[in-house]
């Protein structure tokens, strides 16, 4: 087998390329800095990345169904604010978590209602709600002092650890695995892909697009709400502008991981790889004392590189003829009664 063919076969496995680059980057950083693989650094890396990982996981649902959700950053901020406010007022952890999740889901319901119910373009709807709820958080923070709650149990949500694992990492891991499973094995997940591949055909085949899109946006909002709860617990304070820009990082992570913006392709774990990639990049640059102002530049370059690379591997895979292709099953049956071959008569 020629090297080219082997390369093409490897590249054809979904997500392998990003994972390999990710691995190469980890090796590079660990050789460049002795601290990189230190347990404290890894711990920081994972804890810091949980918020992006969660948002990216939720946003992959939206992207696969063929939509986009720009509001998740401000949903995160508003949920964080309302969670902390509830903690301050009631000191009830379950209630605070419920408020955080419900506020996210409610904004998702609003997004989904406008998009699926009224048929407004998702980019426009979520751009508007992004603005509305970023402003809402600003109003909230001027009305209430969202600094600190003495509750230990609330703090332990994002600062504690279970079996030596930081609890936000554990929570995120469980949620991500659940999201991936739901997408892969349930009818709900199957319909999401179908709608993303060809929404008109899915509709004619009996997929209830309206309900499906509504559900996806609610889910996206609720996941952003969860990220907000964790962030509030970690910071133990909520400032105006919290969460702004997270939506773009999450979408960038999904795209770097290989989730298409046109719908129907990608998966949760690919977005997670993309998010971890960006987090590692940021951490590594800090360790190498590269100014953090360069980070967004590198993020942008990564997006372009990821797209360009996937196009190249697609082309490579298309030009190489796979050796193990199945034979055509269409063999004409010989008919003994008619022996003459149809010849050209003209």
């Amino acid at each position: 087998m020629r090297i080219r063919e082997r390369l093409a076969n490897i590249a054809a496995v979904e997500g392998v390329v990003v994972a390999l680059i990710f691995l190469a980057m980890i090796i590079f950083f660990s050789l460049s800095s002795p601290y990189f693989l230190g347990s404290q650094n890894l711990r920081n890396l994972f804890v810091e990345s949980t918020f992006t990982v969660l948002l990216a996981a939720g946003t992959s649902y939206v992207l696969i169904v063929g939509g986009i959700d720009l509001s998740i950053g401000s949903v995160l901020g508003v949920s964080a604010g309302l969670t902390l406010l509830t903690m301050q007022k009631t000191n009830s952890l379950p209630l605070a978590i419920a408020v955080g999740l419900a506020s996210g889901a409610a904004i998702g319901l609003l997004n989904g209602g406008l998009i699926a119910g009224m048929g407004i373009n998702p980019f426009i709807v979520t751009l508007a709600t992004l603005s509305i709820f970023a402003g809402g958080l600003n109003v909230l923070t001027t009305r209430a002092q969202l600094i600190g709650t003495p509750s230990k149990s609330f703090a332990s949500l994002a600062q504690g650890s279970v079996f030596g694992l930081p609890s936000p990492v554990l929570i995120t891991a469980i949620v991500v695995i659940l999201l991936e499973l739901v997408l892969i094995v349930t009818p709900f997940g199957r319909r999401i892909y179908a709608a993303g591949i060809n929404d008109r055909a899915a509709h004619m085949a009996g997929v209830n697009l309206r309900r499906l899109r509504l559900q996806v946006y609610i889910l996206s909002g609720a996941i952003a709400g969860l990220a907000g709860i964790l962030l509030a617990s970690k910071l133990n304070s909520v400032q105006p502008g919290l969460g702004s820009g997270y939506e773009l990082t999450a979408i960038a992570a999904a795209v770097i991981g290989g989730v298409g913006l046109s719908g129907g392709q990608g998966s949760v774990w690919r977005s997670v790889i993309g998010a971890l990639f960006l987090a590692t990049l940021s951490q590594g640059m800090q360790l190498l004392s590269i100014s953090s102002t360069w980070f967004t530049v590198v993020t942008g370059i990564s997006i372009v590189a990821a797209i360009a690379f996937s196009r190249m591997t697609q082309r490579l895979a298309a030009t190489v003829r796979p050796a193990a292709s199945p034979p055509e099953p269409t063999q004409p049956e010989p008919e003994p009664s008619e022996d003459r071959t149809p010849a050209a008569a003209g």
Partner: peptide, 26 residues
Amino acid sequence: NPRDAYNLGIAIVPEERKTQAVLGDF
């Protein structure tokens, strides 16, 4: 909606196979 129709036992083979019926990547 079509979901209701399928639940009632009505199914369609739509015109324009490519745009209205086939889920190409599936």
